[in-house]
Design a binder for these strands. Sequence first.
DNA 1: CGCCGCAGGCTTACAGTGTAAGTTTTCCTG
DNA 2: CAGGAAAACTTACACTGTAAGCCTGCGGCG
Lengths: 236, 236
Amino acid sequence: MQVDRAVAKKGIKSEASEGSARRKAALDRRSIAESAVRIADAEGLAKLSMRRLAQSLGVEAMSLYNHVRNKDDLLGAMVEHVASGFYRPDPEAADWKAEMHRRGIRAHDQMLRHPWSPPLIAGRVNDGPEMLGYVDATLGCLFAAGFDAADADDAWNAMDSYIYGYTQLALSFPFQPEEYAQVAAEYLPHLPKERLPHLYAMTEAVATYRHKGMHRFEFGFEMILDGLVQRRAGQG
Amino acid sequence: MQVDRAVAKKGIKSEASEGSARRKAALDRRSIAESAVRIADAEGLAKLSMRRLAQSLGVEAMSLYNHVRNKDDLLGAMVEHVASGFYRPDPEAADWKAEMHRRGIRAHDQMLRHPWSPPLIAGRVNDGPEMLGYVDATLGCLFAAGFDAADADDAWNAMDSYIYGYTQLALSFPFQPEEYAQVAAEYLPHLPKERLPHLYAMTEAVATYRHKGMHRFEFGFEMILDGLVQRRAGQG
DNA sequence: CGCCGCAGGCTTACAGTGTAAGTTTTCCTG
DNA sequence: CAGGAAAACTTACACTGTAAGCCTGCGGCG
């Protein structure tokens, strides 16, 4: 209802492609969320305040509250934006494992693109239409593959646990893969060898071995998928 | 009045003291962190402010900064406290899979006990001694099992991704397992059946099926472990 | 045309945050 | 007991989300 009105309003004041200095014309829930995403991408979620966001839209902070209930609601809208980039598995597809594989990779990539998103996606109740549609497609594909409700629930849980967990860990790791070797070499002298012998050995190895780089996400994800395939097979 | 207030506060927190008049409190890093953990457990991380924490210790906010660099440092100390409850796999153990299994279960349980902890554990750089010792023991056990550095890295990553991801998702799910059936039944009429057919079917099933309850964490975790075992076997 | 309602902007204000800077108290040691 | 260091305290500042209320310009109606 509120959305409908906002959309209608926007349509009315479509203002014939005005190139004027006043950019405040496009103030609605979606454009606010998009601007918020842009700020969070560029400067981090911590820097995203209502005032900062309003400023980027050429408006005062409190004006945002005409389009967004509160900051939490705004975060929900941002999650929806991210979720709109997720892949929805196709229930009609022949190869369900391939669908799920693609789903996982895309979610991982999309969250890497918006590094602030995993805590929000995994740490809140997200029941926007985009997210629900995503879930619906996923369940549909699993059902079509022969999973019953309980199995689909388990499968979905297992996959998403890994997807979110891996992405979150990857994002909070303080170094880029290309840096590993050099950083390891620098840390090595400061590591108490007798207190942490295995971590020392590990660091030593990292300092010298050529890092594989790619496919690290898929290493564990494939284990989950294979486990699911196996379970499906063993169960008719 | 200043004296009165001081006396009153001392009285409030006197339960843990040994009754000596000059003993105000054992205010050090550890006891501060423990108090912080207690508050976060009871009231949530959002309610944990420096002032609130200081108050619980019968002290002013700024006094904490004599023992803790800043709030982030405090969070680190809280993580260390949680990590002290993790299980350190034994490199000497015969059955490395059992060790890793136990490690995962314990980490999961420990984080459930401190629901605010997963975002901190997975979302920050935690290099306290407790956490490093935990990592060292884990690597040691994997090395002893025959993993080389790269494989151990992959294995460790895969396991922890699942552990953190699953725990985080479980914690942010808004209902308890026992409620599932009833909540599903209540939601069902509000779900747009034609827009979200599979989610509808799922909810319908949840409303009727008897929930398994236990072993949901292990469902996916076992897949990871089995995948690791298999990989180890195939590689001599 | 004039007027009115009101959506959506704006201003002000408040309680709360982390913490820098500076002051006072407390305690240990010589 | 003197002096100095450690630690607690006070004050202050910049910043947060947002409640309450005001103002303005636009669309619809008599």
